[in-house]
């Protein structure tokens, strides 16, 4: 499946782009992270400490175990600092 992967804040800076379109067969967010981290050193650096990374699946806050079945967009970002 084709997935839009979005990055925000320091993840965007570390990876060097705000979004990318990838072909993947990852079943969960965790599988997708493993694939992305294996792409190059920048992705590897961004995903080196998953305790500092949060995610959203189709714009809903999600967990590493969230399924990617029929999903179109996944976003990765640091803990949010609104307000």
């Amino acid at each position: 499946m084709m997935l839009d992967v979005l990055y925000f804040a320091w993840l965007r800076e570390r990876i060097g782009q705000p979004r990318e379109r990838i072909e993947t067969s990852a079943a969960t967010v965790r599988d997708l992270v493993a694939e992305l981290a294996a792409m190059d050193e920048w992705h590897a650096a961004a995903f080196s400490d998953m305790s500092a990374v949060r995610c959203a699946v189709d714009q809903q806050l999600a967990e590493l175990d969230t399924s990617l079945n029929e999903v179109r967009e996944v976003a990765f970002f640091p803990p949010m600092t609104g307000g």
Binding site: F8, A9, L61, F77, P78, P79, M80, T81, G82, G83
Partner: peptide, 26 residues
């Protein structure tokens, strides 16, 4: 406010006079 602080997708960065900018930690 509690939900906005840590569960709304905003990220703050503090820009300083020397041109640097540090992301604010949660």
């Amino acid at each position: 406010m509690d939900w906005l602080k840590s569960r709304a997708p905003f990220w703050k960065r503090e820009l300083s006079a020397d041109g640097g900018g540090a992301w604010v930690d949660a």
